[in-house]
Design a protein around this nucleic acid. Structure first.
Lengths: 219, 219, 219, 219
DNA sequence: TATGAATGAGATTTCATTCAT
DNA sequence: CATGAATGAAATCTCATTCAT
């Protein structure tokens, strides 16, 4: 049994190794520059070996996206108490977002893979990709907004689902853009500040009459 | 002299012809699918000729961006009265944005070329590309915000310049994403609605204590 | 000894299993589509294991050919009475050929592997591959023709051996072609009709002055 | 005009050069060994250049087949007088076949490309590929057989069209097989003898009661 | 004995760019 | 000024075969 376990672990490790290097390349040069040869070289594997672990280049990208989106969504979900008001939950979500970004800029940026694979499919119309890796995030967001409208901390003006899509769209669009930059051109601190200010503006824009003013500041 | 003039005019016409066809392709298929052969074919020129008018493929894209950004910035500037309050000017700017989009979705989308060429260089840090095609737009925006802070219609919380960059970044990020889709996958009406709702949220988020509530609705 | 026997039996079984699955694939998709991975998958073995039983892909194909040719030659030999005249023996041989094809289209088709492995080596010149899997068939054929020439039922015009080679070449060429088609594209009934008509033409062409006209019809 | 002509001629020459080298390779090593790199190397062109002249590897093969089939069919058609009897026409056709083979073994062998591209599609069932490059040959053959049945020089036993298909199938199957051999393994003289004897057997097998015995010998 | 894993070598195809005419 | 032609470099993917365990 020990052998099977080790094998399985090693297999998982190789898989991770490939993803790791692919991510590295994306983060260094943007995903337009990702190519199988370089992934292979960095992982010290042959190109052919990559195809043992992933069916195609797209499969690698999908795996990266999946991992990133899950990590992030889980991270966020853990940080949102159901007891708090709608606007406070949103604030918590965005705080988590920034915190996650701080902890792991990388995972964060990689959610941008989404728009590379499916440019624009997920958030621009109502029905598309209901099962995409980001769908759960949008659903979570919509749920919170609905709660906020109910408790008066979020303005009742908009359809929760559409608003959720807007919010995720905006955030991921910025991420997407950041992820396309070579690492040298990115300034993580500045990205963080921009996002932070953007989120504050959005918070104020969303706030309903019962929102606690204290919940409209991010940090 | 007549001959030189004609020559020069013809040269300009060829240049436009190339840009025209390149734009058409981008709008039809997204810019990842742009290739020199197709531009040449559509313009009924040889690939080699393209290089007489543009140094490289990137130069073509830059020219397209330049044109689109200028068109748009001029369009906007004409519609903003210096007499109105800051928040009203922003509202006017965004109304113009949407109107411009309505009138010419296409030119608009082409501002997305920016992020294809310089992913993230313009808006994510403070100093970069001060002369980029969108710089004037940001400057205009910052000027308006400054005015709004002065007249109390915009909340004084933020640095005008940074806020301007955020606003332009958000708008162009969405455009960028839309521009990567093939025409068939785009839903112009939905894009317009999303942008409109986003702008309203931002308007409310930016509004200062002296803002006229009527100026916070977009249409 | 019991153990050694079992081992040996098991080894033979594995070998057969591999061949079985390789044949299945060839018959389904034509031999150009045969690959080791699929053989391994179907046999529920690893690719590496295939190499324990066969030196190479070619060795597998050779084994298939060998088996098919033997099966067929035996089938034919059993159905030819030494008492009958030369032309009647040929007729019997071809009847058996068609019958064998009817009973087991598949084994039959696999003789086509020959030309995949040794395209043209066996029948196009006089001396080559005297021990090839089809050599016995040609020998049998030549022997019959010799008998026919002796008893006047086959025209004396040609060298028996060369005529035998021609006959086998023609038959296997058609089989070869059929075996390259994926199963879906084959029409066994039409193949049978074509072969049958071809054989009748050949029978008439071979017949000597003493041939019984009744022996020139195939069915 | 002189320039345009020259260019056009040069273009045609390059095209021919590519085909020439591709044919060379096929004839030397069989078509399974044909690859774009080698064609390019021999033609002293880059791989990319090949794609200027042919859309794909298959297009090259198709062009070879087309050329070979046309050359051959024209060659044959010129040598058949409409005045002669059916069986004499068939004899003439086969004589031409062998003569053509003598003059240009190459063209001849290359008709085998057909079965490489469409293994088995053309002659095994009645309706398929009615416009294939070999269709005209079959039609010609069927027409002659029809004529022979009418004038009594060919036995009335079979459907002319089916018989034509059988004849072409047999001939091309042998060619096909020969074309798959590396040049070193082919013995043109022996192929010629085999074909010649085969054709004589077929001639006798097809002959009707009014056939002139002299027309049943090939040389 | 059996195998999971790895790989070298090669296949076809694409595309921005250059150059001789 | 215009272009047909050419190409180098790269991209994705396949497959028979080997090797360490």
């Amino acid at each position: 049994m020990g052998i099977a376990e080790r094998k399985s672990r090693e297999k998982e490790e190789r898989r991770s190794l490939i993803l790791l290097n692919a991510k590295e390349i994306i983060l260094e040069k943007g995903f337009d520059s990702l190519n199988m040869q370089e992934v292979a070289d960095r992982a010290e594997l042959s190109k052919a070996t990559l195809y043992l672990y992933f069916e195609s280049k797209e499969a690698i990208l999908l795996a990266i996206l999946d991992e990133a989106a899950s990590t992030f969504t889980n991270f966020v979900r853990e940080r949102i108490s159901e007891a708090s008001s709608g606007i406070e939950s949103i604030r918590a979500l965005w705080t988590a977002y920034l915190e996650c970004y701080g902890e792991s800029e990388e995972i964060f940026l990689l959610t941008g893979v989404e728009s590379y694979l499916n440019p624009g499919t997920f958030a621009l119309d109502a029905e598309s990709s209901p099962d995409g890796p980001l769908a759960r995030l949008i659903a979570l967001f919509a749920e919170i907004i609905g709660r906020g409208i109910a408790d008066g901390t979020i303005a009742a003006s908009a359809d929760p689902f559409r608003t959720a899509r807007i919010a995720v769209l905006v955030a991921t669009s910025i991420i997407d853009r950041a992820a396309r930059m070579p690492r040298a051109a990115r300034d993580p601190k500045m990205i963080r500040i921009l996002l932070s200010e953007l989120f504050e503006i959005l918070l104020r824009g969303l706030a309903g009459k019962d929102a606690d003013p204290a919940s409209l500041k991010l940090s």
